[in-house]
């Protein structure tokens, strides 16, 4: 509860934030504070300076951008979960956002802060990877777009450079006949994902035409389940094929499944097919509804 001292700097524009970042090596960015403040309180982080980007209004809000939704980095989980656009065209993301932490956490925590923190047990990365979302990172010399699958590189590490700030997340919108879902095995204490599975399924005349799946929580960072995707593509959208395809997720997990005192790596690996299957079924059901 007693953070070490730091200097507090406030940015009202991206340009100002970049200036402050350049002038203060080692400074940390503060958005909603729900990733950084807990670290500060326990002195697990003790940066010399904290740059509050909360006042940068251009980083807030959800807007259509072609076939995608652009979600500003400072958009709170509550806003993402409540957004009609997100619920309609990226249901898995709304579902994941609605399950982050608890209501008060969702009122302050932001999508940008969440993904920059890159906790392996976080929910949003799994969905963003599954949905082929991209992260807009802005550096002093302009912005670049990083596919979500390349953004998350390890436990609490990302492709973000020291002088870059997450400005937005761009999420492709589901079209008619496409559904997405996120299902989660929540840790009973932390509410983080022990296993999380996100899926987007395009159903055409009862067949899974396109399949996108990612898993998180049990691996160092969210990753695509391409073996599952291949196995299900072209198969009938029914329970037996979901189960058969989901079983292939073991090929996607790799050798670095996390285990801890609550759930061993072996158990988590055994749960991955179950949660993938459930995510596929839920996504396909939604595809039928849209």
């Amino acid at each position: 509860m007693f953070a070490a001292n730091f200097e507090y700097l406030r940015a009202t524009s991206l340009a100002e934030a970049h200036r402050l970042l350049a002038a203060n090596p080692g400074a940390k960015l503060l958005a909603g504070g729900h990733s950084l403040v807990p670290l500060l309180k326990l002195r697990l982080a003790a940066p010399p300076a904290v740059i509050d980007i909360g006042p940068i209004t251009e980083l807030r809000g959800i807007a259509g951008q072609g076939d995608s939704l652009r979600i500003g980095a400072l958009t709170t989980h509550a806003a993402v979960a409540a957004s009609a656009e997100v619920r309609t065209s990226a249901a898995a993301l709304a579902e994941a956002a609605a399950g982050v932490g608890d209501p008060a956490v969702r009122n302050r925590g932001t999508i940008g802060g969440n993904i920059a923190h890159a906790d392996p047990a976080s929910d949003l990365p799994t969905v963003l990877v599954a949905l082929d979302a991209a992260v807009v990172a802005v550096g002093p010399k302009g912005e670049r777009t990083i596919p979500a699958a390349e953004f998350f590189t390890g436990i609490m590490t990302t492709a973000l450079r020291d002088n870059e700030i997450v400005a937005a997340v761009v999420v492709p919108m589901s079209k008619r006949g496409v559904g997405s879902a996120y299902v989660k095995f929540a840790h009973p204490a932390s509410r983080y994902a022990v296993v999380g599975a996100a899926a987007r399924v395009a159903v055409n005349k009862g067949t899974c035409a396109e399949v996108q799946v990612a898993v998180g929580g049990l691996v160092p960072h969210a990753r695509r389940a391409s073996a599952v995707e291949r196995a299900l593509t072209g198969q009938p959208a029914e329970a037996a094929s979901f189960q058969a395809a989901a079983a292939r997720v073991r090929e996607d997990l790799g050798g670095d499944v996390n285990g801890d005192v609550f759930a061993s790596a072996e158990y988590r690996a055994a749960m991955a097919p179950v949660y993938v299957k459930r995510a596929l079924a839920a996504a396909a059901a939604r595809a039928g509804l849209t």
């Binding site: 406030r10 504070g33 807990p38 326990l42 009122n107 302050r108 204490a189």
Partner: peptide, 27 residues
């Protein structure tokens, strides 16, 4: 608590419930 779990510190910030242990006063 000291890990933003228990909710005993909840207040309204601009009308919305937040955990005041996970918000700097300067924010």
């Amino acid at each position: 608590c000291d890990t933003s779990q228990c909710g005993a510190c909840m207040v309204l910030l601009d009308g919305i419930a937040v955990k005041s242990c996970t918000c700097l006063a300067v924010q």
